[in-house]
């Protein structure tokens, strides 16, 4: 049975540049194994060594995010369309951010203290 799979730009090196490939399988897991037999390495970009769907990718069956359909156990049927997109995410989270935020907290504390001091000079410290 044929399932259409839409491949994002970043993974087209595994499909010879193809934007759409076909595969088969009763579940997403089976489909990815089938695809990997012709497009070696693709599966490893989507599934972690622990056997879970990678956090960095979104996979959809028709119009649904597979995270709500059982992830790798999501059932597939002939004619389904699977879309793979890189998750768009990021942000300042990290050591630098934590440091900056703690500096901001320190600054806020100093300002509060300063303001309190202006209202009541005796308590300034």
């Amino acid at each position: 049975m044929a399932i259409e799979v839409r491949i994002p730009t970043i993974l087209r090196s595994y499909t010879g540049g193809a934007k759409v490939v076909e595969g088969s399988g009763d579940t997403l897991n089976d489909l990815l194994t089938d695809l990997d037999s012709r497009h070696g390495g693709l599966r490893a970009r989507l599934v972690t060594e622990a056997g879970a769907l990678h956090r960095f990718v979104n996979v959809y069956v028709n119009d649904e995010d597979v995270r709500f359909l059982g992830a790798l156990d999501a059932k597939l049927s002939d004619g389904d369309s699977v879309t793979i997109l890189p998750a768009v995410a990021g942000g300042a989270l990290g050591f630098a951010a934590a440091a900056a935020i703690s500096r901001h907290s320190a600054a806020a504390g100093a300002i509060a203290q300063h303001n309190a001091g202006r209202r009541s000079p005796a308590t300034a410290g």
Partner: peptide, 23 residues
């Protein structure tokens, strides 16, 4: 693809780099 950093500089964090999926 844009996003803001609200307490730090406008430079990609390690998280940004790890997730960047649109070359």
């Amino acid at each position: 693809i844009y996003h803001s950093h609200t307490a730090t500089e406008a430079y990609p964090s390690r998280t940004d780099i790890a997730f960047a999926g649109e070359p």
